[in-house]
């Protein structure tokens, strides 16, 4: 019944294949919606609510890009991708961008031919232990049993950390975060290790979170960022500068509440350039002059996005830490808009 559709698609795709790669923006605009790859559910970063709308920190970035292109934050099709399917989904054009907690590594950037356009969350691997163990540092974990997700970079980081500190450990291999929570609570392991944001989210679900502590040591660098395909730099620019606009907006004090007021014109030329009242940055991207204004109005600036999804007022309760603005001692540093 769908054979005709299938073969028709094949034929059209074959014709289009030659020049499909360099015009993602045109494709997205013709389609009328952005295809954004997200996780198959990660607390605080991407999950559907009871009415089926996606919410979360990564989701917010997808919505910001959609708002920058269309002026409409709902013009996004979210495509859940697993750890195995995410890169093919992007490479094959099934999604236009990935905002999926993906660590920026050399080989992913170079060998897999993707373009990481920035970092929206600086994460790192940490350890969680029951408070009753009276452990205050990861250096005291010699001989511990450790719950660890198999086949992830966390497994390798763990081995590196213990061997470089001349400590031994006994791994308890587990498959998913859900299983890890159960095993850890049942006492099958002394320590649970994964990304610090994941630890915080897991700890928040416990009956008594105060009975568990996340140790201060962070043993790896996990810069998580959105990525696009190699070879379409115009498209990469749009995603990169949307992210930068959110970060710069926080630095400059533009929020979703005051963006329309500021868009009337301010004393600060950089704010004017971002919001499109001065210069023609939007036109350079091939977008409307109000692109950044729409993005900020839709999801708020970086700080608002952080606070509403994973910040200290949410059950996850992550501190800004490395993800604070450079002016506050963090790593967020947007290049200037000029």
């Amino acid at each position: 019944m769908k054979k005709s559709v299938f073969l028709g698609t094949l034929a059209v795709a074959g014709l289009a294949a030659g020049f499909a790669s360099a015009q993602t923006l045109a494709e997205v605009q013709a389609r009328g919606s952005l295809n954004c790859g997200v996780t198959t559910g990660l607390t605080g970063f991407a999950a559907p609510n009871a009415s089926g709308e996606w919410e979360g920190f990564d989701v917010g970035l997808c919505r910001a890009v959609a708002a920058a292109i269309f002026g409409d934050a709902t013009a996004v099709e979210f495509v859940p991708t697993t750890g195995q399917t995410r890169f093919t989904a992007l490479a094959s054009g099934e999604v236009d961008m990935l905002a999926r907690n993906t660590t920026w590594t050399f080989s992913r950037d170079v060998d897999l031919a993707f373009e990481f356009v920035g970092v929206n969350y600086y994460d790192g691997q940490g350890f969680m232990v029951p408070r009753a163990l009276n452990v205050s540092s990861a250096m005291e974990l010699d001989g511990a049993t450790v719950c660890i997700q198999t086949g992830t970079t966390t497994e390798l980081n763990l081995a590196d950390f213990f061997s470089s500190n001349n400590m031994s450990y006994e791994p308890v291999p587990i498959e998913t975060n859900a299983e890890a929570q159960q095993q850890y609570l049942a006492g099958a392991c002394d320590v649970y290790t994964t990304d610090a944001s994941g630890l915080a989210a897991t700890r928040a679900t416990f009956e008594d979170p105060s009975a568990h502590v996340v140790l201060p040591e962070i043993v790896s660098k996990e810069p998580l960022g959105p990525l696009v395909r190699h070879g379409d730099n115009e498209w990469a620019d749009i995603v990169r500068w949307t992210l930068n606009a959110l970060i710069a907006a926080e630095e400059l004090g533009i929020t979703s509440a005051n963006v329309n007021e500021l868009a009337a014109g301010t004393e600060n030329p950089e704010i004017n350039r971002i919001l499109g009242t001065e210069g023609d940055l939007g036109a350079m991207l091939g977008l409307d002059a109000a692109w950044a204004r729409n993005a900020i109005a839709a999801v708020g600036n970086y700080g608002e996005l952080f606070e509403s999804n994973i910040g200290e007022n949410t059950p996850i309760g992550l501190a800004r830490g490395l993800n604070a603005q450079w002016t506050d001692g963090g790593l967020l540093y947007s290049p200037p808009f000029r």
């Binding site: 559709v5 299938f6 698609t9 094949l10 059209v12 795709a13 074959g14 289009a16 294949a17 499909a20 790669s21 494709e27 093919t88 989904a89 490479a91 094959s92 054009g93 099934e94």
Partner: peptide, 10 residues
């Protein structure tokens, strides 16, 4: 996805 031409996602 690898066998089919890029951009053809049925």
């Amino acid at each position: 996805n690898y066998f089919l031409p890029p951009g053809s996602n049925f």
